[in-house]
């Protein structure tokens, strides 16, 4: 069972690629989600239309096909990208579409009374969004964002099909050279699971920070002392 781990260098290299894809893809997805999510609540019909087009197109297309399209089809018309860049684009665009819906839903879930209070204080539309609405919406976004983040991480496995040496790709190599099919894929599963748990930890931490900003838990919770000590500073709205 541990024979497979003789190839641990290969596995770690693969895991590193998977992590890079996850970080790159989720950062792109986050930017797209916030931009297009806010577009989705715009007062302008055109801007809202932009949100619909983006969300419907990239939510409705398979990541793998998107990947093939970037990797095999675009070079035919003269656009050639590095495989990693291609993979991050495909993952980010796809997950960003789901994220945009999360952001839009979270923004419209902030109580209307909060919005009215911003008008009564005469904040400009931009100030309303940045100072009051988004900071409160973040707490609603985080749990679904956690799901998307882990989905994205697991979804990176498809890049093995465009010859990127991620965790799954290395696993298949090891399986072929050792013939240890069951154990190879067992350890690959364990690797993915561990990465997912670490991601989940980050999301939990963010949730606690935001809860504290919104006064949903005491600011000096002893059980959080160790966590909060490592990250001083203000909340999202600060």
């Amino acid at each position: 069972m541990f024979d497979v781990l003789d190839s641990h260098e290969e596995l770690l290299k693969g895991a590193w690629i998977t992590i890079q894809l996850t970080v790159g893809g989720s950062l792109l997805a986050l930017v797209l989600a916030v931009l297009f999510g806010m577009a989705g609540v715009s007062s302008s019909r055109w801007v809202r239309g932009l949100n619909r087009v983006y969300v419907e197109f990239f939510r409705g297309t398979a990541t793998l096909v998107l990947l093939y399209w970037f990797f095999y089809a675009l070079p035919l018309v003269g656009f050639k990208f590095a495989p990693m860049f291609t993979a991050i684009m495909a993952l980010g665009l796809n997950v960003g579409a789901y994220g945009a819906e999360v952001v839009r839903g979270a923004i419209i879930s902030v109580p209307k009374a909060q919005y009215e209070a911003t008008i009564a204080l005469n904040l400009t539309p931009t100030q309303r969004m940045i100072r009051v609405i988004l900071p409160q919406a973040v707490s609603l976004m985080l749990p679904p964002f956690g799901n998307l983040l882990i989905e994205l991480m697991k979804g990176t496995a498809v890049v093995s099909l465009i010859t990127i040496g991620d965790l799954t790709f290395r696993g298949k190599e090891i399986q072929q050279s050792t013939g240890e099919t069951a154990w190879t894929f067992f350890w690959i599963l364990v690797f993915y699971f561990v990465i997912a748990q670490v991601l989940q930890l980050f999301v939990r931490f963010a949730e606690r920070r935001v809860d504290r900003m919104l006064g949903r838990r005491p600011s000096r919770d002893t059980s959080l002392a160790t966590v909060s000590a490592s990250a001083a500073g203000t909340g999202v709205g600060g």
């Binding site: 009374a113 008008i119 009564a120 409160q136 006064g215 709205g237």
Partner: peptide, 17 residues
Amino acid sequence: RKQVGMVFQQFNLFPNM
């Protein structure tokens, strides 16, 4: 709006501040 202020039934303080 600079001339007008309002106090609401449900207070509507900003919970993120």
